[in-house]
Amino acid sequence: MSYIDWYEKHAVKHKKIIDKLTAQGYGKEQIIEYFEYENMAKNEKEFCPLYERGDKCHDTDYLNCYFCACPHFRFKDDGVEKIGSKTKYSFCSIESKNGAEGVYGDAIHQDCSKCLVPHTKKYVTKNFDLSWKKVMSDCQL
């Protein structure tokens, strides 16, 4: 699956949950709490394939899934740049010290697995918007 395919499909899933919660009268704080990993894994199993296995994408006690995918992630399905014989497809716009580049054959992809920037309650609260696509609008190059 390409980055853009995942991005578009995920935006639909995210909006469906937001629409459900706002219809129930949830405010910002309640929505942020709803997106905590334990609740999402219990109530929104289709949101993430890791939920069924009881796995987390990041090794941390507290994980907020509101920004599944990071607003600082940048991608281009046909490649951001060529580096020798390899093609770079994604990168971190803030160059997080906990991010890394993964090399897979001739492809280079951003590895965010050790970065918790968008998954803290403080970050989600500061950058919250009901429209996930609006917050994520700079991701696709």
Rank of each mutant, 00 (worst) to 15 (best):
C92T: 04
T87E: 10
R53A: 10
T125Y: 05
E81G: 06
A100E: 14
C112M: 07
H10M: 07
E46R: 10
K16P: 07
N64V: 00
T60R: 09
M40Y: 01
M40N: 03
V12A: 07
K126N: 03
G99Y: 09
Q140A: 15
C70D: 02
Y89V: 02
P118S: 05
W6I: 14
V103E: 13
D5L: 08
K114M: 11
E81M: 14
E52R: 10
P71M: 08
G27W: 00
D138W: 14
E44D: 13
I31H: 01
A69Q: 12
K56W: 02
Y89P: 02
C68W: 01
K82Y: 12
L63W: 04
I4Q: 15
E44H: 08
C139Y: 03
A41I: 05
K122S: 08
Q140G: 13
S113I: 05
L63A: 04
F91T: 12
G102D: 13
H58Y: 05
V117A: 08
G27C: 05
I18G: 06
C112A: 06
G105S: 07
F35K: 00
I32C: 03
S90A: 09
W6A: 12
W132E: 01
G54F: 03
I31F: 02
K134S: 14
M136P: 08
E8L: 11
L141S: 13
K76D: 11
F91N: 12
Y51R: 04
F73E: 03
V80S: 06
E52P: 03
K126Q: 06
M40H: 01
K42D: 08
E38C: 05
T120M: 03
C115V: 07
R53Q: 12
G27N: 14
K16C: 12
K122M: 05
I94N: 10
D138N: 15
V117Y: 09
K9W: 09
S96L: 10
E81V: 13
C112S: 06
D106R: 13
Q110F: 15
F67E: 02
E36F: 12
S93D: 14
K86C: 05
S113Y: 06
Q24Y: 05
D61G: 05
G99D: 15
D78C: 10
I94H: 09
D5W: 04
K15Q: 15
S93Y: 04
D5C: 07
D106Y: 11
H72Q: 13
Y66T: 02
K28W: 01
F35W: 03
D55L: 15
W132V: 00
Y26K: 07
H72Y: 14
T60Q: 07
I32W: 00
Y62M: 09
C92Y: 05
R53I: 06
N127R: 04
V117K: 11
I31A: 00
V135M: 04
K28H: 01
E81C: 12
K45S: 10
Y62L: 10
K126P: 00
E46H: 11
S113A: 08
K134E: 15
C70I: 03
F128K: 01
D111E: 11
D5K: 11
Q140T: 13
A100P: 04
D19H: 01
S93T: 11
F47D: 06
A41C: 13
K133Q: 15
E44Q: 14
W6S: 13
E101I: 10
K9M: 13
C112E: 03
C92F: 04
K82W: 12
A100F: 09
